[in-house]
Structure formats: C-alpha cells, structure tokens
Simulated assay, not measured.
Amino acid sequence: MDKRNVEVVVISDVHLGTYGCHAKELLKYLKTIKPKTLILNGDIIDIWQFSKSYWPESHMKVIRKLMKFVSEGVEVHYLTGNHDEMLRKFDGMEMGSFHLGNKLIMEIDGKKAWFFHGDVFDVTMQHSKWLAKMGAVGYDTLILINSFVNWVLNAFGREKMSFSKKIKARFKDAVKFINSFEQVAAELAIEKGYEYVICGHIHQAEKREIATDTGKVTYLNSGDWVESLTALEYNEQNWSIFKYEHRDFVKDEIDEGILSDAEDLKSKLDINLLLQNIKYEIAR
C-alpha cells in the first residue's frame, strides 16, 4: 500500500499500556502515512494505569514508529494530557524535531490553530483527581469486558457493540458534558482569535463550526484509539476525520512485523526492558 502524504496528522487518547489500546491498528495506520507534522494531543502513554506486567510488544512498536518519524525529520509535537500529566514538568523540551509541550499554537495556511488536550475543562479533573483516576480504571475494565463480549459476538457472527457508547448515549449528563466541553473550548478560542481549536480527552471525534455572538471557530476533536480509532488529517486547506476500518488495510502488505493477538499477549516487557528499548531507539 502506497503511503499518503498528509500535511498535519493529530492523534490523541491512545492509552498505551492499557488493555483497551488498539496499538496494532494504530501502527497499521501510521505505516500508511507520510506526515509533515504529527501532533500527539495527550494521553498517548497512560502513566496513570501503567503496569510493569502489561506492555505488549505492539505498544513498543508504536513508540518505535513515532521515534522513526522523528529520525526522518517529521515535526512531532507531544502535548500532554491528564493520563500523562507527569510529563508536564518537561514543558518546552526539544530533541531534534521532537517537541514536548502542554499546548501548541500553530499557523496553518494563514489561520491560527490552538491545540491542547482539553482536560482543563473537566471539573472532575480539577477538583477530584482521585475520582477521575477511579473512573479511568473503571473505564479500562469496561473496555476489557467489552472486548471479551465482542469476541463472543464475532464467534457467533453477530455485530460488535460498544458498552461505553451506549452508556454515553443513554445518560443525558454525558451528552451534556460533551456539548458543554465543545462550547467552552469554542468560546475561549473565539475570544483568543483562533480559527481552529483542536482537542482530545472526551474520546469523541468531531468536526463542526461553532458560532457565538462574538465570532465563530472550527472545533475539532481527534477522538481516540480505544474505541473510535480515529485521527484528524489536514490536507489542501481542509480538515477531515480519519476512521480506521479493517477492510481498508490489506493484511499481506501491512501486517509484516506485527504480532498476532496471541503472540502479542505473551510478549510482556518489564519496565527495565522497556527503558532499555527506548534508550536504544534514541541512540540509533
């Protein structure tokens, strides 16, 4: 499969190090693109739930692929989120074409774009962080159970389902929170004079224009790689939402070097080996 040239790619909420992360699918996607700029908009590595006993080889392969982008001169911006907030103290760090920050303001074809994760709008994050962390553990558990249920449904030829999406759709407070999140982000962006505001955090891919009494802005959200499997792409003065679909990826051309599910689950790296791998990739 030929690689696509993409001016700007935005991904967020990958949650490497958790059972819900679709690392193999993300790796397939990354292998099909040649981005000029790659923006990792928070919660790429889930430090909150990081475990010494669960770091599959496919998760390490995603890290290696991101490092390869850097070695090839791709501008990679890692913006911190709440699950990788430990990195926020390194705001402003740069290594070659790799940049670590808490937010990013970039001009794209003459228009100002404001990138940040978005957890600053989450009241739970601001006032009850322990509750947010408990919720994250509960969410990861729900995803794990959901994966098992979908495996059973697939075995019987039934359509897969998403527990969390059904929960979000049924509870008005969840819908209200998402709408409020988007509105607040838009209002702040308009106030600051930005044409685009790009977030993550709520695992809900979106592209829409939001207007207020003082102006309008294009609000975008990159979704996640836990359930939605989405990214944002910018080409020829247009933003679009990329949605991963398995049928679009030819196995023989893409899967080379990617472990099967069974092999992947057996390939657990301990934390020391993980650090050794990262040091090796940096030194290459």
Rank of each mutant, 00 (worst) to 15 (best):
L38M: 13
I190P: 06
E209W: 08
A136W: 01
K68G: 09
K168W: 03
Q49F: 08
E281Y: 10
S128V: 10
G20Y: 00
T18F: 00
R170S: 11
K268R: 15
N102I: 11
T124M: 14
K24M: 09
I210W: 13
D2I: 12
E236K: 15
K112P: 07
V250R: 07
I198H: 09
N150F: 05
P35K: 14
W130R: 15
S222Y: 07
N154T: 13
E253H: 12
C199D: 10
M106Q: 11
Y244E: 05
E94V: 14
L40R: 03
I271M: 15
W239E: 00
Q183W: 06
I33K: 06
V10S: 04
K52D: 15
V62I: 06
T32L: 10
L30E: 02
N102D: 05
N41Y: 12
G92H: 13
G101D: 06
G73S: 02
K165Q: 12
D2R: 15
S222P: 08
V123F: 09
L66A: 07
G138F: 11
L79F: 00
H117N: 08
R284A: 08
S180C: 08
Y19M: 12
K52Y: 11
V120D: 10
G193A: 01
M134V: 13
D261N: 12
M106H: 08
K3Y: 01
